[in-house]
Amino acid sequence: MVAYLIRRLINAVLTLLVVTLVTFGIFFMVPKLTGSDPALLYIGKTADKVAVEGIREKMGLSDPILVQYGKFLKGIVAGRDYANGPDVQHCDAPCLGYSFKTEQEVTPLLMDDLPVTLSLALGAAILWLIGGVTAGVISALRKGSIPDRAVMFIALAGVSLPIYFTGLLSKQIFVNWLGWLPEGNYVPFLESPSEWFIQMLLPWITLAFLFAATYARLTRANMLETLGEDYIRTARAKGLTERIVIGKHALRSGLTPIVTIFGLDLGALLGGAVLTEAVFNLRGLGYQALQAIRGNDLPVILGVTMIAAFFIVIANLVVDLVYSAIDPRVRLG
């Protein structure tokens, strides 16, 4: 078990390293291949030679790429210093870099946006888990019935709807036509829980709908498979009540795969729900990443990619561990 854990952890760290290296490579190499200057990308609107040289020096852009990468890694582990005029500026570990475009450290900037993404992902996750699994279970138990068909059709429609369309549509309907909800503007939970709830409601529902559709389909398929297994038949033959058969046996093994996927989905969302955040103007990690990409703010792009990969890798790890705990068939080793 310990050896397995250590191996998984090493794997996770390696994956993170590769993600950063690839991101790093793309953003430093591609501009070179296409003939534009990364330093110029940084300052954007000014082209003053002195300014470009200053940026190049500060960013260490003249160093070989591996040296730059090494410095970046060192910053995460031990923090690093940036020369900035009269002062040397220290960036504490975990230092994800320093955005010269906005004159701020990347780590606190992203930590600022994290609560928004957390609110969005967790709230939506609760909704879709409840909604999707319930619909899936009902569907499976009443296979072939009208409710089953309706659920399955809605679910299929749900996975076929792009969120940037449902998002706009729901805004148009609930905000503009019906006037039930206000125009979105995120309010932190600690500032006003009720406002926070009202503001997040539409993004939650829209995002959850998409996922609930997938989960309903998945739950139904798994449940059907489980219900066909011998041990369920045995349980029924033993005369156990339907309630116990379904609630204790079928659900447990039918839902095991859901746990896996739930973990992975949540991990992916925590790295920034780019489209949802863009449609609902939520300043979360995904929104920040989009802004950074549009403004060529490499340190921020790298930072978000790191955090996103971090969540995905952690989610994978957790899922594997949980899976091994709840499914005895999985051997560790």
Partner: peptide
């Protein structure tokens, strides 16, 4: 590795440069 990758973000970044 590819599956554990912030793909949409990455595609945007890649396509935009």
């Amino acid at each position: 590795f590819l599956l554990a990758f912030p793909q949409l973000l990455f595609s945007i970044a890649l396509v935009s440069v």
